[in-house]
Amino acid sequence: MAWTERQRAMLREMGIELWPGATVTSPPLQPPAAAAQGAAPAPVPPGAPAAPSPATSRGDVATMDWPALRAAVAACQACALAQSRRQTVFGVGHERAHWMIVGEAPGEQEDLKGEPFVGPAGRLLDAMLDALGLTREPGPPERQVYIANTLKCRPPGNRNPLPEEMARCEPFLVRQIQLVRPRILLAMGRFAVQALLRTDEPIGRLRGRVHRYQGVPLVVTYHPAYLLRQPADKAKAWDDLCLAAEVLEGQGAAGA
């Protein structure tokens, strides 16, 4: 796959250098049937939380439309995170986006702005998306992504999410995925992977192949915050994005 000069510039901004005249290649696409063999985790049944969740007591989350879901998240008091947050972080992007990105938990900047992936990690994510011709800014569903987190509230001190917090927040994410109906899911970071694939396997063992969540192809990759700490893995993350793009391109070819 050959890249334009603009895409090469974005890759250089991500810290991935290309030799003059070189092309960027993606890892071989593994068909879903093959990906399902071996260690690939089983998909989660539609709407099923990891554990019984008080979230459903705030209304039938599984039947909510976008306005009702947004209001339910904003009013949520299901766990102690509601006491320390400044605001909830619902999600941004096209509500019928082809690409949906799932991150971990909001950090301090997300808590202040009410939007996922802001600050240095957000800028790196934007550069990664831009290199693929994608954006979080308004646009058609094939270009504008939808971005959401596993948790809608920031854990104090940016600590790791607790299992109980993830379980109580999960119905919101499940419903977001059901409403968006993405053609490809990109799970960024350990807790996003745990929430969607029900596995403690490290990302290094899960990336490079296609998983499935409720029938939707899912690709695992590193969180941008991790890539800022470990820039040597940026090239691996780029491979993951290229794999996701190949899956989407394959869907278009199959439907042609």
Rank of each mutant, 00 (worst) to 15 (best):
P163T: 06
P163F: 04
E164M: 06
E164N: 04
E165A: 04
E165D: 09
E165N: 05
E165C: 05
E165I: 05
M166K: 05
M166D: 05
A167P: 01
A167T: 01
A167Q: 03
C169A: 13
E170Q: 15
E170V: 02
E170C: 01
E170M: 07
E170Y: 00
P171V: 09
P171A: 05
F172P: 06
F172C: 12
F172N: 02
V174C: 12
V174R: 11
V174S: 12
R175W: 01
Q176P: 07
Q176K: 12
I177T: 11
I177D: 02
Q178E: 14
Q178T: 14
Q178L: 04
Q178A: 15
Q178M: 07
L179D: 05
L179C: 09
L179H: 04
V180I: 13
V180W: 02
V180K: 02
R181T: 15
R181F: 02
R181G: 13
R181D: 13
R181P: 02
P182S: 10
P182N: 08
R183F: 03
R183N: 08
I184L: 15
I184Y: 02
I184T: 06
L185M: 11
L185H: 07
L186P: 00
M188I: 05
M188A: 13
G189Q: 06
G189I: 09
R190H: 13
R190P: 09
R190T: 15
R190F: 04
A192N: 08
A192K: 07
A192V: 09
V193N: 08
V193T: 15
Q194C: 05
A195L: 02
A195F: 01
L196K: 06
L196C: 08
L196M: 14
L196W: 01
L197M: 12
L197S: 10
L197G: 12
L197Q: 10
R198L: 07
T199D: 07
D200W: 08
D200Q: 14
D200M: 10
E201R: 15
P202E: 12
I203M: 13
I203R: 13
I203P: 09
R205D: 14
